[in-house]
Design a protein around this nucleic acid. Structure first.
Lengths: 336, 336
DNA sequence: TGGATTTTCTCACTCGTTTGAGATTGACAC
DNA sequence: GTGTCAATCTCAAACGAGTGAGAAAATCCA
């Protein structure tokens, strides 16, 4: 760990003051009227010695940290990689850095926030849906810009998410065009999924699609398990009577579970029952049948959230819209 | 952004010197013989005011940063979430923080490293396989502890990965017990996958399993696409002649593609052809048929890598083993 | 009561960078 | 010879925390 080059090293080498070096390297050469030759020699020495400014010292002096905290609620989230990747690209492009924090089982512990305060973040991005975040108040009251990627019913901070209702609308419209007149819904306890369920209930009639309470199953399990158990339940219960012609799943994971249950029950998809997902996970197109779904606008959500909290936006005083819903994209494949 | 509480605030409130506050809060109270009452009052004041030490100031003074850089090669990696989650938990438990950096398309740009140097990381964890990392030399030569989660054939730093050969061995042993005597292999260009291919070639004979060059397909595409095209190719080419009874895929993603191709070709799995994966992705058990595979020891890999680079280990002078292969776990489901 | 100890706390500097305020130099005019 | 004005550069004090060395006050012993 060789010690790094500081302004002092440059100053000593050239026999000038650190002040001058700081000003020249800080781009203030013109303002203070530094001699052209001096400016050149300082720049050159800096380059030769491989000078890299010490961010800690700068920040200590009050410079913006250009560091964003990223709080992840759910590391199982299949989108996590894509979202973090997008944020990383944005951060990189805007010369910000990203500090990670996370919570166990959607719980916050005071110490979880240590990395955030420790590095003096200038903005906060929360990844994942959630509500009533008491820990957030500390940041918000200090005027720290906060943006969430995901829904938060009772939040006071900015958030961006896919338009669940719009997505369900796309799906129902598509199903209707395919001639489907009876549909069920599969959900798990995830808040965004419950929201989609409510949209489904509300919109089904509008598209002339019949649904029944017994065709709408919300399981306590989550993801594929919920889908499998839920679909199995619907199939069993409506064995003799009329059964839905389509199962709208609140997420791709749930839909995958449903596909499995239908396959086990010998019900062919989409011939006997159509299935739709929501999210567009990476493997949706390789499934058999390939999953018809609604694609999450991951990049756009990341971009929106980043734009709200980045140092540049905050400095410009951009007022942050409290809630943005971005449209999803209908991806028609084989399952419906 | 109300200014944060500093030691100075505490000192002023109690009418003592900042030095005393620093020493007490730094746990040096006993060494310098501070009065019990004073220690108490300082601690209490700190708690009441909500004092959080300023990491930048500490680091500037030469304290270990307790900050690890996490460099991600591939944000598409389906394990990314799990790995980052595990690292985050470890970091949290050991009071470290995590700074993220990443590369576009597995390429490094000098500026990509900015966050790492900026925050003065004390260790580096690379997520993803790779080789010949020129950018790494700078860190290594400064004596920075580096660990990679993933293989790196020509690396000089520590790395941990799943034991590919061991995994293939588990798979072949299992296939043999199921009475399979002829098997093919599906790969894409990922280095770890090619490595598994070589293991397969080497080990097949040992288990009395016949294989042929035409049954071993490495596609230029990656993931599911490679699996789908590869499986299709094998099925077509061996249409009339003897064909393999099993397809060993280098990854779950590839296996999913293969399942799809076989389904399209009307070849039932595992009755007519067995399929195995490698990785154990989240949805493997919800597929139809559920995928037999080898589980990556994600938690263990993260733990190993973290242990190498954490400040505590580095301080203790723990010598870092250059290469560790952790055993995968055979997960027998339906596809083989 | 004076000096030696002990107990308890403070001074002053440092880390690398920034910045308001001032210093030094030379040239030019009168 | 002296004052003025630029041009050019330096002093010194921060930011928040840590630290070697020493100081002030209280206690003890004779």
């Amino acid at each position: 760990m060789s010690p790094s080059i500081t302004q002092k090293d440059i100053a000593q080498r050239l026999g000038v003051s650190v002040t001058l070096v700081s000003r020249v390297l800080g781009g203030k050469a013109a303002q203070i009227g530094a001699a052209r030759a001096t400016v050149e020699s300082i720049r050159q020495a800096a380059a030769e010695l491989g000078y890299v400014p010490n961010a800690n010292a700068r920040i200590l002096k009050g410079a913006p940290t250009r560091t964003l905290g990223v709080v992840v609620y759910d590391f199982e989230d299949p989108f996590l990689g894509a979202i973090i990747g997008a944020l990383q690209r944005l951060a990189h492009a805007h010369e910000h850095s990203l500090v990670l924090a996370g919570f166990e089982q959607r719980r916050v512990q005071a110490q979880s926030l240590m990395p955030l305060t420790k590095h003096g973040i200038s903005g906060l991005i929360i990844v994942g849906a959630g509500s009533r975040d008491a820990w957030l108040d500390g940041f918000l009251s200090r005027g720290l810009p906060v943006a969430r990627i995901g829904e938060s019913p009772d939040a006071t901070h900015a958030r961006v998410a896919v338009d669940g209702e719009g997505g369900v609308r796309l799906l129902l419209n598509h199903l209707r065009r395919r001639g489907i007149r009876r549909a069920g819904f599969l959900s798990d306890p995830h808040p965004a999924h419950l929201d989609r369920l409510r949209s489904f209930e509300r919109l089904a009639a509008e598209f002339g699609i019949e649904t029944r309470p017994s065709w709408q199953v919300t399981r306590a399990e989550s993801g594929t398990e919920a889908g499998q158990l839920g679909a199995r339940q619907i199939v069993r219960e409506s064995g003799t009577r009329a059964h839905p012609e389509a199962l709208v799943a609140a997420s791709d994971a749930i839909a995958i579970g449903a596909l499995r249950a239908l396959s086990d029950a010998g019900i062919s998809v989409p011939a006997k029952m159509a299935v739709t997902g929501f999210d567009d996970l990476p493997f949706g197109d390789a499934l058999s049948p390939a999953l018809t779904t609604v694609r999450q606008p991951v990049q756009e959500m990341a971009r929106t959230a980043f734009a709200w909290v980045s140092t540049d936006a905050a400095a410009a005083g951009t007022s942050s819209a409290p809630r943005v819903l971005l449209p999803g994209e209908l991806v028609i494949r084989e399952s419906a």
